[in-house]
Structures are given as C-alpha cells and as structure tokens.
Design a protein around this nucleic acid. Sequence first.
DNA 1: ACTTGCCGTGAATCTGATT
DNA 2: GAATCAGATTCACGGCAAG
Lengths: 274, 274
Amino acid sequence: MKLITDIYLGDSYEQLQLLPDCSVDLIFTSPPYADQRKTTYGGVQPTVYVEWFLPIAAELLRVLKPSGTFVLNIKEKVVNGERSTYVLELILALRQQGWLWTEEFIWHKKNCYPGKWPNRFRDAWERLLQFNKQRQFSMYQEAVMVPMGDWATGRLKHLSNTDQLRDTSRVGSGFGKKVSNWLTRTQAYPTNVLHLATECSNKQHSAAFPEALPEWFIQLFTQEQDTVLDPFMGSGTTLIVAHRMKRHTIGIDIVPEYCEMVRKKLNETELYLI
Amino acid sequence: MKLITDIYLGDSYEQLQLLPDCSVDLIFTSPPYADQRKTTYGGVQPTVYVEWFLPIAAELLRVLKPSGTFVLNIKEKVVNGERSTYVLELILALRQQGWLWTEEFIWHKKNCYPGKWPNRFRDAWERLLQFNKQRQFSMYQEAVMVPMGDWATGRLKHLSNTDQLRDTSRVGSGFGKKVSNWLTRTQAYPTNVLHLATECSNKQHSAAFPEALPEWFIQLFTQEQDTVLDPFMGSGTTLIVAHRMKRHTIGIDIVPEYCEMVRKKLNETELYLI
DNA sequence: ACTTGCCGTGAATCTGATT
DNA sequence: GAATCAGATTCACGGCAAG
C-alpha cells in the first residue's frame, strides 16, 4: 500500500484548517521556542507565546482522533536570569482548552552542548509533554520494551527460597508475586525518562531533536498505516522517520526551503526503500 | 568552631517566625506532596496546596539571605489519569510572591518504583526547583566539579553493559546512537540532570531522598559555616548531611518522634567526627 | 581490599469491590 | 453514589555477607 506524505507550505494555523476532523493518530512536534529562531519564524515573544499557540492547539484538538496523542517537545529558555514560565502557562491553558495533560516525559540529552556559565549549569534536558483527548488512548507499550538489567540474569535463573516464599508469606509490594511470570521475562517496560544523545552530525540543517526521539514516540503511539502530523516541520525529522516506519505523514512549515528540502529527502527515502 | 544545630518541634509556618531575617544560606526541603504522607502530615489536598504553601514560602523568603538559594524537591502524582497541576501553579505563585525561578533540576530516579499500567510508564523523575531572591546568588561550581570523584564514588560511576545497551536498543531498527561516555563527561562538567537511586533497602529509616541529593546542593550553594534550613525535616537527611559537611543547620518538623530521632542521629555524628 | 551474589523495598498506579 | 480500600502488577539499586 502506498504511503501518503502531504507537505503544506504556509502558516500552521491556516494550513491545519485544510485537514479533516479526527484524522490524525499522533501529533509530534517541536514548535519554535519563544524568542528563538528569530530569523525564520519571526521570534514569538514569551509574553504572547500562549496566546499565539492556543488557536493552533485548537485545530490540533480538532484533527486528532479521539484515541490519538499529542506530544509537544519544548523547553523554556532563560530570560533575565530566570526560567520563563510560558511553558507552565501553556500547559494550564491547554487543559482549559480541553486537552488532558497525561504525562510529562523527560528527554535527557546525554551529550548536551558544552559550556560554563557563572551561575548555571548546562541544560541537559527537555520536556516532552503528552496530551490526549480522552483518558483512553492507543498505546503500544510492547513496541518500546528494553532489555532487563543485569541483575535479572542471576536472580531469575536461580530463584532463592525467599523469592518463592514471598509469594505466600509477604503481603503488599514485592518481587515474589507470580514468580512464574518472571522466569521467561527478558525485557522490561521503560520509564518516563529517555536517555538520548543529540545529533551533531548533519550540520547543514540542524534538527531540533535526534531521529530516535520521534521514532520512540511513533513506535509507542502508532502502528503502520497510521497518520503522523508535525505542524512545525522544520528540517522534517519527524516526517522522515515516520515515513521510514511506514506511517502516513503530514507536515506543515512556513519556510519554502524547508518544504522543498523535506520533499527531496522523502523521495530519496522512497528510492532507498525500493 | 562549634556547629549550631537547631531543631524546632512544631508547625513550619509558626516556627519559621522565630528565625531572624536574612539568616539562612540554603533552604533545601522536600515538603509533603499533595495527597501524600497522610498519616504523618495530614495529606494536603491538591486544590489547596498552593494556598497552604504560600505563607510558609513568604517566611522562607524573609529568612533567606539575599545571596541564598531555595531548593524545592517535589513531584506531582497522577490523579484521574492526568498529572496534577498544583506544582505548576505553585511555581507561578511563588514568582508572584517575589521569588525568582532560577532553574529546574531533574532528579532521575534510577531505581524507580516498578509497575505496569495500560497507558502509563513508571515515573522515574522528580523536580528540584531552584528559587532565588536575586539574580546574583552564591554558587560554588568548582565544589561539585572538582571533588566530584570524592563524593560520588560508586554512586554515579556505575553503569552496566546492559544499561548502555538499553538506551540504544529501545529504539529498535538500528539507528540508535551509541553513546557510552556521557558519565565521565558528567563528572567533569555537571549538568542540571542528576542520576541517583533512592536509598530504600536495609535502612532503619526510609528517607525521602538519598543523601547524595542534599549533599550535592549543599556543596553547590554553601561553604563551611554557612547555614542550611529544612522546614520539613522528616527523617533529617538534609540536616545530617549538612552537619557532616560542617554547615550550621536548622530543622523544623511537626512530628515529635522525628525531632527526637534526628537529635539522636546528630549526636552520633558528632561523636563520630571527634 | 576487591569481587560476587543474595535479597529488601520504595512520594507508583490502575481496577474493582466495599463502605 | 462518592470516597476509600484492597489486590495485582512490576524493577533495579545498594547494603551486606561470604568468598
């Protein structure tokens, strides 16, 4: 089956209106952070950030399927020695708008930008805010399981007396319940902290995040043939990864060069896959 | 020189009023989270949490030196499938009160509580919110950079082979990046992400956080003979560590048993030092 | 002193039953 | 009914003891 890849050139709010209701399974995006990237996006001021974002979020709410998920990668910058509060205000405002603030994942940037400041350390993490329309949403946890820790090899191979006894003797939290479930277990569920390095390879167009970041969330929240939307496409990392993972993709960006570049990259991927 | 250790039994708000203005260099505390610790602290409801905390914060603002720092360890729990928003509201309210929200550190809990749920992963991080009275505050970065190998021996260094594997394999299909040298870099230049396990086993008294947590912030924000305050002392981890590090300490708790226990522990430390 | 292996337990969260 | 409770599910670190 052919994968659809739609790239819209233009303002996010306007272009989103072209999309039908309840048609997207996952929105994964990293919007321009306040007061950053002045040259390309005109630099949204922190003071008007929420006001600027809310109409867009309303459209996102409309196009997202009831079972879908919206993941927002964002981090407030330091202004005048203080962390800006626009992200906090945005979360509260989105809830007012009808979104459920389901979870906040932490992206730990393992090789964050080096440097030293007089009263501040290097910023090594970003927020990945998860919003949903409903308390029930699609989530494919098995797709992102990780190997168990080293401890498991020893402990599970040779279950001690206590581990087996706890099944009956201990009440409450513990390891002993349903020991049989564990014997064959080699993988564990991940946590809400993601350890990923930032990509520093492609200097041409610095992506906001490494491919592994959207990849993880696409694995978690979608299946093949689902639709992934990035309303602030930029260099198109989300789209390229999603397309490679056999998801339909929709991208929006106001910069013609980005749209053209992503189209070209997707074509290359297409050829590569064949 | 003799180190002063004051322990006040009683309500935080009331006891704080006994302290003079601008007399504390560092406030490091972990207040009862909303809806937690019901048996010992009565369980403050999320809806009234900000209201409850603000008068205490006003006193903290008064007793803190202009160059001092306030570090608040907190994390919102899940209510009805959503993260509570009272922490976000608290940050905004504290700024209204005059605090500067200088930084947000992340404590990555390496051994977080196990569990599996249909639409959520395990919660593996907590917030460490840094507030200040002024944009200029005391910070001794060298203290946590240089002697890091000393205080962190065996704590941060350990990273198993499987741990390295997990970070890359969790994203599957081969384009995960191999990064295994981040720990050594972390030790050379700290970031705002702290990797620590909770100390939960084989301890007489379970503390809310590991000793390494207050230790790191005490190193960073104070010098010997400075004064450290914990208005929600609990089992006294902050005080014991601070005292061991030759800081004057002030602790407040409403539970008589805790006050008595911490006094006893501090005496033991005293003897040990001699 | 250094490694190896055993094992206790934690600011969890959801579901369904019971006051 | 709303509010509370009990039950089930689930990892991984770090302290000890032993080699």
